[in-house]
């Protein structure tokens, strides 16, 4: 998902059916849930527990933003878990560089 689209949905309060999950260093994005870096097994377990009561057709957006995708150790295990658990509407937030450049510097809504 494009960050501009997510930002505009948050600003328009159109996120009622959307679950935004941070699987990286900090839940910067407004309304997102802080799971912690999912390259750590305990955080991956935390994500599994968090997801278990969520309907499989719910729209889910995960993000990390620590670094460019190729170097990110968190996105892959988290997304693989979502697929494994059968989530049909899971998306990855497209932060090509990092959460700073692609979210904070654009003044998109944050949790504080």
């Amino acid at each position: 998902m494009d960050p501009a689209l997510l930002a505009s949905r948050i600003e328009k309060h159109k996120t009622k059916d959307l679950v935004i999950i941070s699987v990286g260093p900090e839940a910067i994005i407004k309304g997102s849930v802080d799971i912690g870096p999912t390259h750590e097994p305990e955080n991956l377990e935390k994500l599994k527990n968090y997801l278990k009561d969520i309907p499989k057709n719910r729209e889910i957006v995960i993000y990390c933003g620590c670094c460019p995708f190729v170097k990110c150790p968190n996105i892959r295990p988290a997304f693989a878990l979502l697929m494994e658990m059968g989530f049909k509407n899971a998306k990855l937030l497209n932060l090509p560089k990092n959460i700073k450049t692609d979210w904070l510097d654009k003044d998109y809504p944050t949790n504080d």
Partner: peptide, 16 residues
């Protein structure tokens, strides 16, 4: 302070 550290801004750090 994560990315909100004033030093990150002062040193024009865009990525790590």
């Amino acid at each position: 302070k994560f990315w909100k550290s004033p030093v990150a801004k002062l040193y024009e750090v865009d990525e790590l």
